[in-house]
């Protein structure tokens, strides 16, 4: 694919040097930006009159433990309901690093960020409520990290005096 995705041209015009890497494969386009630029890039993609990436399809974390310098990668799947184009936006996040929340731009980011937080332990800054979503509140660890065992670290058993107890797996 020689033709550049229109979003990349726009981004390079508005903020030179912001796009760190362009990945075109399987008929899809992805770009990598710095975590610090994420907010203004998203805002531009969302608000630009020609691009109008008004729909956040998905947000997922990927754990590249030991494979990349920074451990995690956040992947935003953007979609424009007007031009019907897709764009994948990626940013690298180290352990214990914080990422700005996108709930101000797409409200759909709310639960997606919560899910990402509970599965990978990535903190989102000024998110209104990062409570656990799919696992129970007492859950220990971040299950989708590569170093989390498939069988889990502990299991719940019913306690003698009612209530729940955790039993550690060997």
């Amino acid at each position: 694919m020689n033709k550049k995705h229109p979003a990349i041209e726009k981004l390079e015009q508005a903020f030179p040097g912001v796009v760190k890497k362009i990945i075109t494969a399987f008929g899809e386009t992805g770009i990598v930006v710095d975590k610090e630029d994420l907010m203004r890039v998203c805002r531009l993609l969302n608000e630009d009159k020609e691009l109008r990436f008004d729909f956040l399809s998905d947000l997922s974390g990927v754990d590249y433990q030991g494979k990349k310098d920074k451990r995690f990668e956040l992947v935003y799947q953007l979609y424009s309901t007007h031009t019907h184009q897709r764009l994948r936006l990626k940013t690298e996040v180290g352990e214990n690093e914080r990422v700005p929340t996108m709930t101000g731009i797409w409200r759909s980011a709310d639960w997606l960020e919560r899910e990402c937080h509970e599965m990978f332990g990535i903190e989102f800054e000024v998110h209104r409520d990062l409570m656990r979503l799919l696992t129970i509140e007492e859950f220990d660890g971040f299950p989708l990290r590569k170093d989390y065992p498939l069988v889990g670290k502990a299991e719940i058993i019913a306690g003698n005096e009612g209530g729940l107890q955790w039993r550690k797996r060997e």
Binding site: M119, R132, L133, L134, T135, P143, L144, Y148, L150
Partner: peptide, 10 residues
Amino acid sequence: IGYLHRGIEK
């Protein structure tokens, strides 16, 4: 939600 979480992604 989460009462039916089976960890399909994992």
